[in-house]
Design a protein around this nucleic acid. Sequence first.
DNA 1: ACTATCTGAAACTAGTTGGTGTCAGTTTGA
DNA 2: TCAAACTGACACCAACTAGTTTCAGATAGT
Lengths: 217, 217
Amino acid sequence: MSAPKVDDAGRTYRGAGPQQRQDERRTRLIDAAVEVFGTSGYRSATVGKVCATAGLTKRYMYESFDGSEALLVAAYTYATDTMRDSIVSGATSGDADSDTRVRNAMTAFFTTIGEDPRLAKIAFVEILGVSPEVDRIYRKTTESFVATLMTVAEPAFDGSSLPAERKWTLATGMVGAVLLIAQQWVLAEHPQQIDSVVASSHSILTAVLGRLTAPCE
Amino acid sequence: MSAPKVDDAGRTYRGAGPQQRQDERRTRLIDAAVEVFGTSGYRSATVGKVCATAGLTKRYMYESFDGSEALLVAAYTYATDTMRDSIVSGATSGDADSDTRVRNAMTAFFTTIGEDPRLAKIAFVEILGVSPEVDRIYRKTTESFVATLMTVAEPAFDGSSLPAERKWTLATGMVGAVLLIAQQWVLAEHPQQIDSVVASSHSILTAVLGRLTAPCE
DNA sequence: ACTATCTGAAACTAGTTGGTGTCAGTTTGA
DNA sequence: TCAAACTGACACCAACTAGTTTCAGATAGT
């Protein structure tokens, strides 16, 4: 008990406490993981490559992560959090007009993955088929996007008399529609203008949402 | 020039010509690949395991395939061909009623992957993120499903004045909706009745198709 | 019966990688 | 100044796998 004791054990080094140093290394590793997994792919990546990209050595990899799979999950979480944030902030920005909010959400989403396709590659391609455990995380994360959609578009869903299970599956389909449009867009390296994919996604979402409340048949 | 010369070189063995024997081995390998990749996953699979499952040795693996990746692609092609066949035959069965045909197609599709989830696992999970080359095949195959959808639902698309690019993206979204519903259904090991996922898929498809021809706003 | 072809199993090679340990050199605090 | 903590580079091992080769034995045609 004398100076800036941040955590329990360890001393400061280059002006940073032990916890802070470890956090910085962890962040650098996740950044490197996004870069490596998002460009060369997870399958062809090795622990060594990620560490080299981070400018660290394996030792610090195993300090913060159990193995390459844990690192992949961290990169995946970063990617999906970024996407979710952009969608939610787009959907809740200003205008109360439901139609405009859907468009804003889609614009924000496609802008985000257009600017950093690595996130899309990780979230839509690399994460799949790694292991049963990672598959489970993927499924749970996808469900969280479905839940997010239902929350954001709550009025439309509330106005429907469909059983909850059906609503959930409809929302899953809507997420899937946007997901595949985005995936193909990224895999094909943006052959279309962003406005076009936004407009199409918007059309699908509003078509299905419209059916929920005002069946036009 | 004497007896049943089937192909160029080689002689009959156990009542089969050389070409027939090789074809049978190839088929057995693909069956084994579907089993192994569709249950344990491609990532944890080895050439040895697939060959053992097929009751053959590595030698015959390299007789018919360049490597495990080629075998994966063969299993993937088998899976997607099976799915496409079920969809198309469902969509073109009897009734001219557009609504019923969509329902039949979805029923056939979900029945197929419900009966053999290995196909879904391979087509929706295992195939992704293997290599740039396999990613390209995945993208092309997905596009072929989009093209199939547009062919089957041609009247609806023809009745729209949207630019071709937009139609294509809308169809991509529809494929994505069904895909994710199916993927989550399989990954979660069928928590819902098949009728429910069929009905939801049907709702989405008809909602979007309906928008194409008869905008209800 | 005899020989050439074909088959199946296993041995072998060579390369890769995850994970751990070592050690010299640097920074901190007393 | 000096010892203890920290860092980074690299060596190291053990396990695993793709792909090739070898060889004894089975099968077909003559």
